[in-house]
Design a protein around this nucleic acid. Structure first.
Ligand code: SF4
Ligand code: SF4
Lengths: 161, 161
DNA sequence: ATAATTAAGGACAAAAATATCCTTAATTAT
DNA sequence: ATAATTAAGGATATTTTTGTCCTTAATTAT
């Protein structure tokens, strides 16, 4: 659905929203490790998100890093897609037609349009903050590592299954 | 959502389903023109759809071309995605996690899973035939040309319509 | 002031997706 | 049989996406 770049952008932003504040910034290395993404590529993406004071903010130097402002937390998730210039996928025709309209609908239109509207609503109505809270609830994940597998030697009995 | 290749595959298959039969095959040039796609690239895609008697069929030589069997018409639209090896996008995590599960959900899971299921249902329950019929209803489009601007001079009577 | 730290940004590399071209194989019409 | 037609398929080119590396700029700690 989204490009790798946008997936990383979503994960990074959510992680920053959950784990940072103006006086507790996160460095690139920490973020990339947390969301399981290639570091240098992630740097580019964080730059995009930061440009023009968009979704996240940054400061250089010791104790510098990335963080998100109170205000930015209230942005719809769609703002992340916009920063990545990938927000039009939400409106895009599944058949790839140049535009979607009631007057020139594709054969999937009548079936797909409702799904499309739900998608758009999701990305426009839910805020970055909301997703971070979903994480705080404790049981959602943002990387591919099973939990945090530092259990090592397992004693018989206490299995996570 | 889908790659260009898959978009062309969807459009091509729908067009073939609407306009062909075993004794009225469509040539590459006709198909590519009808769905507004690059001809040579479309050839590759039609090959993929044809391989192993998958979604569409073909014969070479004069009066040859592509067509779709009665049986293939009944296939779910998902079969097209499968032939293009792009069916997993339906199940894919919007955040790009390796897998989606209730036990390891991403922060968008609770909001997105319903949309996802509708998407999967759409592609699994609707058949290729159904989409072709949507077209036959008369008012859906499969290319970017406004209507069919080749009105030119029409002889009344025996055209292949 | 100097050195250390950290993001910004340019240049480049690798891989994947998109697209074209040409030759070959199958089929049909003559 | 021969020639014409049409898809199959290989090779190659172009563009986009993904990714790395290195230098520069900003900031802070000492
Ligand atoms: S709604 Fe139908 S027409 Fe409009 S874009 Fe989606 S699919 Fe194409
Ligand atoms: S449902 Fe939630 S977890 Fe499962 S994939 Fe979609 S987004 Fe990720």
């Amino acid at each position: 659905m989204f490009s790798k770049a946008t997936e990383y952008a979503l994960r990074a932003t959510i992680h920053i929203a959950k784990n940072s504040s103006e006086n507790n910034k996160l460095g690139l290395a920490v973020i990339a490790a947390a969301i399981d993404s290639p570091q240098s590529f992630t740097a580019k993406i964080l730059q995009l998100l930061t440009r023009n004071n968009k979704v996240i903010s940054s400061v250089r130097g010791p104790n510098g890093g990335f963080y998100i402002t109170k205000k930015a937390r209230k942005l719809p998730v769609r703002a992340i897609l916009e920063a990545m210039h990938e927000d039009k996928v939400l409106e895009k025709c599944v058949l790839g037609l140049a535009e979607c309209s009631e007057s020139q609908p594709c054969p999937m239109h009548s079936q797909y349009k409702q799904i499309k509207h739900q998608l758009i609503n999701l990305f426009e109505n839910k805020t970055i903050e909301y997703l971070a809270e979903e994480m705080t609830e404790g049981i959602t994940f943002i990387n591919n590592k099973s939990k945090k597998i530092k259990v090592k030697i397992e004693k018989p009995g206490a299995k996570k299954s």
